[in-house]
Amino acid sequence: MEIIAKKTRRYTMVLTVLSVLLLLTFLLNVGLGSVKISLIQVFWEIKKMVFHQQAEQSVYRAIIGQIRLPRTLAAMISGSSLAVAGLLLQIFFRNPLVGPFVLGISSGATLAVGLILLAGVSFGLNTAIPFLIVLAAFSGSVLVMIVVLLISRKVKSVVTLLIIGLMAGYFCSSVTSFLMAFAEKEEVKGFIMWTMGSFSGFSWHKVTVLLLIALPILLATLLISKPLNALLMGESYAISMGVNIKATRLIIVLISSLLAGLVTAFAGPVSFVGLSVPHISKLCFGTADNKILIPGTALLGGIITGLCDLFARTVFAPIEVPISAVTSLLGAPIVIFLLLRRRNVL
């Protein structure tokens, strides 16, 4: 009893610390940028925005309200989404090397974007269509997800499904390579930039859509923490506990694919977050209980991606570093450090 109470206290404490860190990351992201704005000014502007105080539109207000705020929210919610998607699939496949893009989600999105940027499929429109890339990427992800889901109904083994997902990814990557081979240099450059991911230029429209879809899905994952916990002990055990394996499998693939597809659609493929954050989360909490891990992973995903994005946009400003370069650069040493420190097996 004492042990349980001690553990609960620990989980509560870690969750509280992570929540505070998330808030600090948020403030750091909103407070720091290439344009120097004092912290007092930042708070003042945010206060005016929150309380709808009438004020003349100042440069600082525009920078905070229209550039930093939407971008920070986008980076954080995307990080949470990718991390939770990764966690779900790691549990589902019982494989620590699995990330949110293992089922070909990112490759599907990349292929669809490639069709537009490399093959010039623009539906006859010779202009910049808002949301065209977003829609294409999301359609690509969803299409691959549907194919994987249809196949998942026919196969029993998760390993087979994993291989099918990998093959779907290879197939899409292969077609994308064909498109790149026939594309012009300028087209390839633009496409490669997209594949490296960025939260640059995130508008409130995009953030709103992202929040409206991602937040309910993230909350919904909490509802499947019990069957997920049962799955940790193997499918036979889960069945004996009354878990509907088929339905759970469908829900896990659906949720993780939607989350990963959504982020990829808006920011391009953001690597490493979905793979590394669940590990960091497990090492921080020292538990496999998904009731704790899901919110913890979401918080950590938001913190790490938020910090990585801050690094990406400020360190070499005005030149921005691709977000995937930063997430991998900072994420890999963190995972290694934690593993060595805790001497844990994943």
């Binding site: 290439s34 344009v35 550039i67 202009t127 910049a128 300028e186 005005p318």
Partner: peptide
Amino acid sequence: GEDWAPDFEKIQEIDPDYAVVYTGSYPQTT
């Protein structure tokens, strides 16, 4: 900053009256 991911803060600070961009096959959508 580069057009694919410019420093919008800097742009807002400079606050240009107008920007000249291009669309076409490689539009500057961002």
